[in-house]
Design a protein around this nucleic acid. Sequence first.
DNA 1: TATGTCAGTTACCGTAAGGTAAGTACTATG
DNA 2: CATAGTACTTACCTTACGGTAACTGACATA
Lengths: 141, 141
Amino acid sequence: MAPTKSSKKKPKAALAFQSPDGKSSQHPDLDALVQQTIARVADKWTLLTLEALDQHGTLRFTQLAGLVDGVSQKMLTQTLRQMEADGFVTRTVHPVIPPKVEYTLTALGRSLGEAFCSVWTWAEKNYKAIEKARTAYRERS
Amino acid sequence: MAPTKSSKKKPKAALAFQSPDGKSSQHPDLDALVQQTIARVADKWTLLTLEALDQHGTLRFTQLAGLVDGVSQKMLTQTLRQMEADGFVTRTVHPVIPPKVEYTLTALGRSLGEAFCSVWTWAEKNYKAIEKARTAYRERS
DNA sequence: TATGTCAGTTACCGTAAGGTAAGTACTATG
DNA sequence: CATAGTACTTACCTTACGGTAACTGACATA
C-alpha cells in the first residue's frame, strides 16, 4: 500500500522508545509496524488460544481444541504455528506414540495477555453500553 | 471422524458475531460477548480512525480520509457508521451546501482508546522481539 | 486384521472482506 | 454552461479467510 507518511503518536502513550520529541521518527513505519502487530495479534483464534493457555498453563493439541470453542483443526494448527513463529508459545514435541505435543506461553506471550487484559476488562465493563448504543442507533434510523 | 466437537457447537460459525446456539440463549456466554466486542473493536480501520480522532479531536470526513492512511471512502464510511452505531463517535451534520459533517469521539470512544493504549504500548515495546522471534523461527525451519 | 489415538496435512470450495470507479445531490463560482 | 467541492452510495470484481472432510503415520489394543 501507500507508504506511511505522517508520524502520529499520542503523548499519553508511555514511550519506551527513545526519540526526540516533535521530530519525525527515525522509523517512518513505526506506526505501520505497530499497526501490523496489533492486526496480527487481535485475531479471533489467537486471542482465544492465548486466553486458554493463559488460564490453563501447558496444554496439548486436543485439549486446546476442546477449550477454544468452535475452532477447527486447521485453524488451531495455523494459529499455533503463527503464535510459535511470533514467539508467543513454545511447542514441545515428545517423540512417543501416539504423538504428544505440548504448548506453553512464553514470557512474551504472557506479556501480551497482560496488555490485552485492559481491553478485555474494558469490554467487560462496556459491552452493555455498546449494546445500548446499538439499540438506540437502530431506533434512531 | 468427528473433528473438534465440543459441548457447544454452532451450526455455522460465522466470523465474529454470532450468538445463539441451540438453546434459548438469553445469556450467551460472557466470554462470547467480550470476544465479540473485542473482535469488532480490534478492526484495522476502526483502530486507525479512533487514533486519528483521539489526536485531533473533531474532524470532518475528508480530513479523516487524509489522516487514516490508505483508507477508501467506502471503508471510512462503513467504519464511521459502525463506530457511530456502537456509540464511539458522534456524527454532526451541518445542513449547509456543500455538506459539512463532523465526527467526534464520545466518552465511550475515548475510554476505548485508553484501553487500547496498553496494547499499543505493548506493540511498540515488543515488535522487535516479535521480528526477532520470526527470524529465529524461519532459520529453525 | 480391524480399529482407535494423536497431531496434524491437504484439497476443495463457499463466503465475505475490501478495493476501484462511477454515480448522486446540491449550489456557488467562473 | 461547466466545473469544483463535500459526503456519501452503489455496482462490480478479486482475493483471501476459513469451514468440511478425507488422508497420513506409527503403534497399541481387541
